[in-house]
Simulated assay, not measured.
Amino acid sequence: MSTEEKIKQIEEEIQKTPYNKASQHHIGKLKAKIAHLRMQMEAGKGGRKGAASIGYSIKKSGDATVVIVGFPSAGKSTLLNALSGEELSKVAAYEFTTLTVIPAMLKYKGANIQLLDVPGLITGAAHGKGRGKEVLAVLRNADILIILVDAEKLWQLNAIKEELQNAGIRLNQNPPRVEIEKKIRGGVGITKSINVQLTDIEIIAVLNEFGIHSADVSIKDSITIEQLIDVVAGNRKYIKALFVVNKVDLVNRNEILKDLIQISAEKGEGVKQLKDEIYKKLGFIRIYLKPPGREADFVNPLILQEGATIENVCKKLHKAFVSKFKYAQVTGKSVKFKEQRVGLEHELKDEDVVTIFVRE
Rank of each mutant, 00 (worst) to 15 (best):
E152M: 13
R131T: 02
V178W: 01
K161M: 15
L139K: 10
L136K: 02
E179D: 01
L171F: 07
D117S: 09
D150I: 10
L115G: 03
V135T: 15
I160N: 01
N172F: 04
E134W: 11
Q173L: 09
I113N: 07
G130V: 11
I180H: 07
H127L: 15
L136Q: 01
K129F: 13
L121K: 08
L139T: 15
D117R: 12
V178L: 02
V138W: 14
G128Q: 14
L157T: 09
A126Y: 13
L116V: 04
L148P: 09
A126F: 13
T123R: 07
L136F: 03
I113P: 03
K182E: 08
I160E: 00
G168R: 07
L157M: 15
I160F: 01
K161Q: 14
A167Y: 11
V118S: 01
Q173P: 02
Q165S: 01
L115V: 08
A137D: 14
D143F: 04
I144S: 03
K161D: 08
N158R: 15
N141C: 13
G128P: 09
K153F: 12
L154G: 06
A126Q: 10
V135P: 14
E162N: 11
T123E: 15
A125G: 10
L121E: 06
L171P: 13
W155L: 14
E162Q: 14
K153P: 04
A125H: 05
V138S: 11
Q156M: 10
A151H: 07
V135Y: 15
I146Y: 15
V138L: 10
L164K: 04
A159E: 11
L164W: 05
I144A: 08
L115Q: 02
N174C: 08
R140Y: 04
D117P: 07
L157P: 14
A125Q: 11
V178T: 07
L136P: 00
E152G: 06
I113R: 03
N112L: 02
N174H: 14
K161Y: 07
L116T: 05
P176M: 05
A167S: 15
G128M: 09
G130K: 13
K161S: 08
G168N: 06
I147W: 00
L157V: 13
V178E: 01
R131M: 07
E134T: 04
P119E: 06
E152I: 03
I180G: 03
I144R: 06
